[in-house]
């Protein structure tokens, strides 16, 4: 297989505090292939956004990468000096954040922001950059783009603003787009439009996408593979269809059961008892063991690694330990 576009190996992110070091990401590993859409799900505090922030080198201090490696197309990027990292960010990795109002500068017109971004990363004239900017806005579905480009962000509605942000993220033709809850602030009818635009335009340009969201529905319709995070650890990763229709990790099973759907007829939702542990109280062994229905002794003492389950799927759960090793214990 060709080298993956992005490869994250044993990523550890820590927050040193007065009362000890909190480990927010604990040995997280995954790859994103060329042109692939990887969904990243989990509850709040599971470390989804942190993974995105670590990749683009925008961890809020005191958070820091305490271990592991991040490779972008064979080049290691987690230890680049800030100046070099800045060139990777925007040029090679584009970003779309949750709230479009905070990712746009209210004091500059959309044209100024787009042209600045394009000219920072690509060596073109002002005129050429403007032409590209109009083309981009047109592509993300902003009507009368040539005229509206000179408007300020507040002239646009929420959905239109998020389109502008997508245009901005794609301005330098990045290889990877990290979209962190791109539709959470939007209404359902607009949400679908934005997801479609993001998916189409990335497919068109061959950009890979890391889609961070808590909305399984969005993942189901958009992603090729999905990674499930729990308490800073990878619980399960695999093709969307497998994970959604036949989840294997007890946490994913519970998560899927707890989502009400438009077609189900069950009277009660399956619920996972309790809540995700705080970072300073992650239990020994498997982090999910206090809430797990299938918990057994080994879960309480030993942390499960991702176990290959065939067909590109990996699950971090002792239930799926290959037989011969289970007998050794």
């Amino acid at each position: 297989m060709a080298t993956p576009l992005l490869s994250v190996r044993d990523l550890v992110v820590e927050f040193p505090t007065r009362r000890g070091t909190l480990r927010a990401l604990d040995h997280v590993s995954f790859d994103i292939a060329e042109g692939e859409v990887l969904g990243m799900v989990g509850e709040s505090g599971a470390g989804k956004s942190l993974t995105g922030a670590a990749i683009i080198g925008l961890l809020e201090p005191p958070g820091r990468i305490a271990g592991g490696e991040i490779w972008l197309r064979g080049e290691r990027i987690d230890n680049l000096p800030p100046e070099k990292m800045r060139r990777v960010r925007g040029r090679r990795i584009g970003m779309v954040f949750q709230d479009p109002l905070t990712s746009l500068n209210p004091l500059y017109t959309v044209a100024q922001q787009l042209i600045e971004t394009i000219r920072t990363h690509v060596d073109v004239s002002e005129k050429e950059a403007r032409k590209r900017a109009v083309g981009l806005l047109d592509r993300v579905g902003i009507p009368a783009a040539a005229r509206r480009i000179d408007d300020y962000p507040h002239h646009f509605s929420g959905g239109m603003r998020q389109r502008v942000v997508i245009a901005l993220a794609l301005a330098a033709e990045p290889e990877l787009v990290i979209a962190d809850e791109p539709t959470t602030a939007l209404d359902v009818s607009v949400q679908a439009q934005i997801i479609d635009v993001l998916k189409e335009i990335c497919a068109e340009r061959g950009a890979s996408v890391m889609l961070i969201t808590h909305d399984m529905g969005v993942i189901a319709e958009t992603a090729d593979r999905v990674a499930v995070l729990y308490a800073g650890r990878m619980a399960e990763i695999g093709p969307v269809r497998d994970v959604i229709q036949a989840a294997e990790h007890p946490y994913t099973v519970g998560l899927m059961g707890s989502i009400p759907t438009l077609t189900q007829t069950a009277d009660r939702l399956t619920q996972i008892p309790g809540a995700m542990p705080r970072l300073n109280a992650i239990p020994q062994g498997c982090a999910f063991n206090p809430r797990c229905k299938e918990v057994f002794n080994r879960c309480l003492v030993e942390r499960p690694e991702l176990i290959a389950r065939g067909g590109k799927r990996h699950v971090a759960c002792w239930l799926y330990e290959p037989m011969k090793e289970a007998f050794d214990v």
């Binding site: 009818s189 949400q191 679908a192 997801i195 399984m216 189901a220 229709q245 438009l262």
Partner: peptide
């Protein structure tokens, strides 16, 4: 109908949703 169509589909039925036009 439009609102129901816009809800992301967890069942992976592969239905092609009718794109919703415009905003409120």
């Amino acid at each position: 109908r439009m609102l129901l169509d816009a809800v992301p589909d967890l069942a992976l039925s592969g239905r092609r949703r009718v794109p919703v036009e415009g905003e409120i």
